[in-house]
Amino acid sequence: MHKMLILAAASAALLGANAFAVERGELLASTCLSCHGPDGHSTKVQGAVPSLAGLEKGYLVKSLQEFKAGTRASSVMKRLASGYTDEEYALMADYLSKLK
């Protein structure tokens, strides 16, 4: 029993040290890339979906909030942004802003 407790503590420490190999922000944002392109790089043709890689974090969050509120016009982003929380905007924006 004692041994189990020690192991449990070790296991908890392990989990604490490295909660996930893939952080939530990256996992959430990965599902945006079918439209926005690999690593946030869209094709560079006229009329393409915009690239997201390296955009400023605050700008990304603000854009998503404005899409949801409808104060920024969009074809599809209002429908998508509406499904996420402000906290998730921040997590995704943090990840996307760091993409090179």
Binding site: L33, S34, C35, H36, G37, P38, S42, T43, V45, G47, A48, V49, K68, S75, V76, K78, R79, L80, S82, G83
Partner: peptide
């Protein structure tokens, strides 16, 4: 579970036609 807020365009337009092509190029790359 669908949290709501999504849906479909009631009509088509050129913008969505153009984004459809971009979607294809980007998902193939992805």
């Amino acid at each position: 579970v669908d949290p709501g807020g999504g849906g479909a365009t009631p009509q088509g337009d050129e913008l969505n036609h153009t984004y459809a092509e971009s979607w294809a190029q980007n998902i193939w790359a992805e």
